[in-house]
Design a protein around this nucleic acid. Structure first.
Lengths: 201, 201
DNA sequence: CTAGTATGGGAACGATCGATCCACAAGTCT
DNA sequence: AGACTTGTGGATCGATCGTTCCCATACTAG
């Protein structure tokens, strides 16, 4: 009961995510947020408590949408591991269709900006990282069963390698590096790992 | 002529570098700087013009010391490429002796925080990146001459791969990831690239 | 219709931001 | 000595920070 809301809370979180994602936490003021979300300070604080809490909401929203979509793309679904990995990484660095520069990965950006000082943020970024590592691990395990992986390949080590590479790719995307160059790096990784290029035996 | 300075300018730049490196640009206030550099605002502004200019000084100082040292370690000096690369990357992620968390790479941190908005910063970070890429290129070219590299290895692509990996490692170091894990990733990369493990033929 | 309840609009809070100003100190020059 | 030049200390500037408060508004319950 009481006066009904004139805005959609979920929509506000989406816009906040976009803003924090592009500018980071410190460089985004509550007035910027208010303008972009079309929220007065009182509505914003009544709904989201404070800036920090809203940021955590945005981070959680990102994980539940963008990150989740990324992990979904790691589900092999019968395709060769080599191809799944390649498509996945290419998708991660694909610059948005419009002329805007890439935003990188919200989780990665946040981990470098706040991960060293903010415990709540750090817990979330580390959890997100672990989910990605686990998805990679599953993919490689499946690949081993299907005989696509070189015999004797250390799966745990390969997960660390791929995860590290992906972080690097995300940073380079945000830094505006040429997509073609990043694709070169991706192909080099895939090739170096020596997955069988054709269907499993 | 005039009254002599009571502080060492270079020393102030060093302290500013440390502060910006750890906290980033936006999270470091001029009062923080003043306290740490033991400088009053008037001295600070007379010497360094403003916060942004001081930040550029710090960034340049970092490139001239830390970055330069990193590139120096990429000079093969007759050692096998495999070993040079491994030692170099391990050194990059070696957590400082004390209990403090890693600070990552100042250039990488800055590129993600300001690279998308600040042209002066971006020009510097891109230049720093290019120097690293060039050092990697030289190393691999030398390795090819010495016969350590697999025949048919695409040097440009391998440079992109290694450079991307290193960015990822730097981010993970700042994120406080376990050094042993990072070492695993490093060894996996080295092995995947397939450099000859012994001396050149 | 009235009482109760939650929101929207927007002024305003104290704190802090980056930056400036000015009186004074500490040197060099003639 | 006095003129000149440069640096120091610290108060202070206007702007902006994150946040709170108040009141009109718009709805529901009785």
């Amino acid at each position: 009961m009481g006066r009904p809301r004139e805005f959609d809370e979920q929509d506000a979180v989406i816009r906040a995510t976009d803003l924090f994602w592009r500018r980071g936490y410190n460089a985004t003021s509550v007035r910027d947020l208010g303008t972009d979300l079309k929220l007065t300070p009182s509505s914003m604080y009544r709904t989201f408590t404070d800036k920090h809490t809203l940021f955590l909401r945005a981070l959680d929203h990102y994980r539940a949408t963008e990150s989740a979509q990324a992990e979904q793309r790691l589900d092999a679904a019968g395709r060769p591991v080599r191809q799944v990995l390649r498509d996945w990484m290419l998708w991660l660095v694909s610059c948005p269709s419009d002329g805007e520069p890439g935003r990188g990965c919200f989780v990665v950006n946040t981990a470098t900006e706040l991960g060293t000082t903010d415990a709540q943020v750090r817990q979330r970024t580390e959890a997100a990282f672990e989910v990605t590592r686990q998805a990679l691990r599953s993919l490689l395990h499946n690949g081993r069963h299907d005989g696509e992986l070189p015999i004797g390949l250390d799966i745990d080590a390969t997960v660390e390698l791929l995860f590290t590479t992906v972080l690097g790719l995300r940073v380079r995307e945000r830094a505006g590096h040429d997509c073609a160059r990043l694709a070169t790096a991706i192909d080099a990784v895939i090739q170096a790992l020596g997955f069988t290029s054709t269907q499993p035996s």
